[in-house]
Write a protein that binds this DNA or RNA. Structure first.
Ligand SMILES: [Mn+2]
Ligand SMILES: [Mn+2]
Ligand SMILES: [Mn+2]
Ligand SMILES: [Mn+2]
Lengths: 228, 228
DNA sequence: ACATATTTTTAGATTTGTCTAAATTTTTAT
DNA sequence: ATAAAAATTTAGACAAATCTAAAAATATGT
């Protein structure tokens, strides 16, 4: 049987960033992502997105239907997973090996994710002992593009009272992450929801021995995993 | 006293590559490097070099005299040293931490040297315990731009008989490095020159207990340091 | 259904970095 | 010193990625 020729198509940094954004907006196969949504996410103009959509469609990385939207092809999804893998592995590297804090890593990883060397990223993976999650709790695709999605729910959606282990953040802004540091809320911590304030949906929670009151905005940006 | 405002000017990858090349061709201050020399080194056209020379002169990174040549300004030298520092530190990282061979690192370092994060490269420096030399024996500039040049001479220039420790390579091509590996010639090895063949300037040398015959082409690409 | 609002695309311009071909300057050789 | 050769610059073009303004298509509301 003939080994499938994997054409290593060279992508520019801009092309890679579009592919990644489309993936994150849910463009994996099924749904069509709108030009406007992509433009907003990438802080660029819709007309630029249209131009790039044509270019990526040419390269068979996206399906593009004029006036309808954009989705990733199989090759596009593979590409996206490869970039996301690199991004998240570099984030782990920065935290575990270079003592970066979890609010510092994203910006640098945005650059490192574009380094072209399969050997490099595979060695980084091995050096880190094949981590499954990045510092924000997001899953790291494997070399083969396998992508395990852990079941998790927002802290705001927990039954009351009940508890779960903090496994991720939805908002990954430095501001939010620093807030969590200041309040000693970290991945791995067990969080018990004690009460919900009907007036503003704020929660009274318990972490270890500490009891604290957190706003709904915090609760809707923290992921927990229940024992169930 | 007012602290000098160090304007972090953003340079593109192309601009950085030009600066680095000019440095390597000897454009640190004194001599003017020709358009043609830069073009040849960078595998581009002289007219492209002229265009870039104007741009870099605008940014005060090079002195450019029409029809005369190009040299680096103080700021240009500082920039060059910063890029070379990154390149060489990444090469050490790849060899020491990721088990790359010395013939594999250059290509990847060419990409990594453009990552913009002072914290990143300083942490890499610390992780490696502040190495002074890269895998090819080339000195690594410090964070402050200090650049110690070790005195060394080509193996071909050694008196006969005499000996020295192998401290570097002039040719860093994968072909040459692999040849050295195959013949078990590595940095740190003591090499004794026993005889020079007048016919072709080849050398009979001794490394440990091994005696071997090497061509003049090899001898003019190996640096040694004598006890003197 | 049809007018209005919104979204998306097109047309044309701009910046960066490159090229080729032609013009200009400098160097070399007689 | 002057002609020929070599090096360098200029002029004009192109691809990539972006933008603005205008046109076209789609969606929305009554
Ligand atoms: Mn990130
Ligand atoms: Mn992350
Ligand atoms: Mn190198
Ligand atoms: Mn090197």
């Amino acid at each position: 049987m003939a080994a499938r020729q994997l054409t290593i198509i060279f992508l520019t940094r801009a092309e890679e960033n579009y592919i990644k954004t489309i993936f994150h907006l849910g463009g994996n196969k099924s749904q069509l992502i709108s030009t406007n949504a992509i433009a907003e996410q990438m802080e660029t103009k819709p007309s630029s997105v249209t131009d790039m959509a044509k270019k990526l469609a040419e390269k068979k990385l996206v399906n593009y239907i004029r006036y309808q939207g954009i989705s990733l092809t199989g090759a596009g999804i593979k590409t996206a997973l490869s970039i996301i893998r690199k991004h998240r592995l570099w984030e782990v590297f920065l935290v575990k090996k270079l003592d970066f804090t979890w609010d510092e890593v994203h910006e640098v990883a945005e650059q490192l994710e574009h380094i072209k060397s399969e050997k490099l990223i595979d060695r980084i993976d091995a050096l880190l002992d094949y981590p499954k999650y990045d510092p924000h709790g997001d899953p790291i695709p494997t070399k083969n593009g396998e992508f395990l999605v852990r079941d998790k729910q927002l802290l705001s959606e927990l039954a009351i009272p009940s508890s779960g282990v903090c496994v991720g953040v939805k908002d990954t802004s430095a501001a939010f992450l620093k807030f969590l540091d200041k309040n000693q809320i970290a991945l791995g911590h067990e969080i018990t929801v004690m009460e919900k304030e009907v007036f503003d949906d704020s929660l009274k929670i318990k972490i270890g021995e500490r009891v604290l009151q957190i706003s709904n905005q915090i609760a809707t940006n923290l992921y927990v995993k229940t024992e169930s």
